[in-house]
């Protein structure tokens, strides 16, 4: 019965298969009696900037870990970059980029060494890594920092570098988990311009943020409450639907309905 339902949905999904980078159907994750992610379904298209919003504890991180192939769903299905998140997690990992607030850069390595390391991990060839490194340092205006240790870079620069590292191997999609947490308004805007540029080049960006002005920068946003996606639409439609002046008002209206006490 469940399988039949999935196959039925799959037919619908296949229509856009070339354009869908993420397809998720009834994805669920339970820990004991606690359902952290409760049957979420959605699709994200190529080159889209998708905002994945929710209060602390709504289930965003758990959902994202499943999408990145780091955690197996309890039930439901999902494909990311064309690979099954449950059956082909290693393929998923190779074809995505990931950046979190805790930028996974090596402080004791130089800027170019970080790029070299991540390029190597993703199996890029040496000359390819070298060309790409030159290109990125040029685009970021970091040419003079090539030999600088990452630990001595200012926060805003580290953040830009971390993003560049996350898309260095040209993944189809990049997952950004609160990439701008604690960053000042000027640095946040510079960062979003990098996201726009990446999206223009066809990379899909899947972003979580607690800044509701950033929610407005997304093509579409979903809002999770108590493990479920309660709305998914363009920021403009959501504001109309909720008769709200901005996304903060939409968020406040929905997230205040949460019944579950914030957890994990």
């Amino acid at each position: 019965m469940e399988n039949e339902q999935f196959n039925k949905n799959k037919e619908v999904l296949i229509v856009n298969s070339d354009l869908s980078i993420i397809k998720v159907n009834n994805l669920t994750k339970s820990f004991g009696n606690f359902t952290a992610v409760n049957a979420i379904s959605f699709e994200v298209s190529k080159g889209e900037i998708f905002g994945f919003l929710g209060a602390n504890g709504a289930g965003k991180t758990t959902a994202m870990r499943m999408l990145c192939g780091l955690s197996k769903p309890t039930s439901g299905r999902g494909t990311v970059a064309g690979f099954d998140i449950e059956k082909q997690p290693e393929q998923v990992k190779k074809n995505i980029g990931y950046m979190s607030q805790k930028f996974a850069l090596y402080d004791d390595l130089k800027v170019w060494e970080n790029l070299r390391l991540f390029g190597g991990i993703y199996g890029m060839k040496s000359d390819e890594i070298e060309d790409k490194t030159n290109l990125i340092l040029h685009d970021l205006g970091f040419e003079n920092e090539r030999n600088t240790l990452v630990k001595s870079l200012p926060l805003g620069w580290k953040q830009k570098l971390a993003f560049s590292v996350s898309i260095f191997h040209e993944p189809k999609i990049v997952f950004l988990d609160e990439p701008t947490g604690g960053v000042d308004p000027a640095a946040r805007r510079q960062f979003w311009e990098l996201i726009y540029a990446a999206a223009e080049s066809g990379i899909t960006a899947f972003v979580t943020t607690h800044y509701m002005d950033e929610a407005e920068y997304c093509d579409r946003v979903s809002i999770m409450v108590d493990g479920k996606i309660v709305v998914l639409d363009t920021p403009k439609s959501l504001k109309t639907k909720f008769n709200a002046a901005n996304m903060d008002e939409v968020f406040q209206q929905l997230a205040r309905k949460a019944k579950r006490v914030e957890d994990g």
Binding site: A55, N56, Q101, G181, F251, Q252, A255, E262
Partner: peptide, 13 residues
């Protein structure tokens, strides 16, 4: 010192 970093909009309020 930046007490609400990483805190969602409802909790911030």
């Amino acid at each position: 010192d930046e007490p609400t970093t990483g805190v969602d909009p409802v909790s911030r309020k």
